[in-house]
Write a protein that binds this DNA or RNA. Structure first.
Lengths: 187, 187
DNA sequence: CGCCAGGTTGAAGCGCTTCAACGTCTGTGG
DNA sequence: CCACAGACGTTGAAGCGCTTCAACCTGGCG
């Protein structure tokens, strides 16, 4: 699991140890709150095991999934983290989960010690951008049905671990529509 | 115009001069090609005056606008720039335009000289991420009609400078639908 | 003048939404 | 241990908005 993280971030063993020395590992049960709306997100997380959703509440009081994440994914409201502004998002586990937390203060101290960690923090920004870009392309270029197939193809794990009602709003449709799309595809 | 750029990027006069010393300013006429599909994007641009669109061709041969930009915006296929991979996008002016180009080689040389330019390049990544995030929120949370109103509100300049047929695919709809939405809104 | 690209309008169709009812499963208390 | 409540998903029916295809208008330009 540490190895996964090292590969993902391109870290040598020494660097990984350095990072983990200022990080903390936590376990959570199902449906626990990891980020509360209205607070500033001052840490980033990495999912060792489990799954979670990042969502917000729209003007009609509906929960809209912004991100769905599983093993090996990074999470957090990166906008709030960067700008220091209060987050509009809520992050909750959808299964029992174990995560590593990287505090902003600690990461910034690391950056002071070695330029390596500067490059590292830029790499995180770049990854966030590239993921956001994929999401735009998905929403802009594909129909709801195609988006569901794309998700199934990219991450069957998400379909496994996260209830359908959270997946539907991630795809930008209602849960009834997703139910019908699934039915249509199996016929 | 230099002042706009300095403010946008948070640069002091000295830093701005340093940057401009390794940049180039170019003028383009309407409908000129700034980035060709299948090539690597090895520079980033800033629009002094004019407008342009970043688009790609889908499997049906249709042009889909990914970005529409005007005065004071940055452009380029940032994914291709970061990864060095060939771009799937095409960038063309929609009006006579004047832009500043920042070459990747030159920016990387600047970064070698001073840590300031490291921070600067991370800031660009962060800006790209934040813009991408807004776009996702727009596509995910709003209807086509609301997205048009959001665009009208955020950037009437885009509506002025860019033909409707390019705006419609940016909003994720057909040009006929956009025509009807506009009609509906004036009634 | 006449052509052509860009935009508008009409009619039909399709897919997603909405509202409502009904299964199905799970966990909990009597 | 069973009965029931509540959450989740499915299905039906009606409606609405966007798409598609086609015709037509308009303004700019050779």
């Amino acid at each position: 699991m540490k190895q996964d993280l090292a590969v993902k971030l391109g870290l040598e063993t020494r660097r990984l140890e350095e990072l983990l020395a200022v990080s903390s590992i936590e376990k959570y049960s199902k449906n626990q709150l990891l980020l509360e709306s209205g607070t500033t997100c001052n840490r980033l997380g990495y999912i060792i095991e489990g799954s979670l959703r990042t969502y917000c509440i729209n003007s009609l009081g509906e929960e809209i999934s912004f991100l769905l994440q599983v093993n090996g994914d990074f999470f957090g409201d990166y906008e709030s983290y960067l700008t220091g502004k209060k987050s509009n998002f809520i992050i909750k586990t959808t299964l029992e989960s174990e995560v590593i937390w990287f505090g902003k203060t600690e990461l910034e101290q690391l950056m002071q010690t070695d330029q390596f960690w500067f490059l590292f923090s830029k790499k995180i920004s770049d990854i966030c951008f590239l993921e956001a870009k994929r999401r735009i392309e998905d929403l802009l270029f594909y129909s709801p049905e195609e988006r569901y197939l794309n998700l199934l193809n990219k991450s069957p794990e998400i379909i496994q671990k996260i209830p359908q009602k959270f997946i539907s709003s991630y795809l930008g449709i209602t849960s009834q529509s997703l139910s019908r799309i699934r039915k249509r595809l199996t016929e």
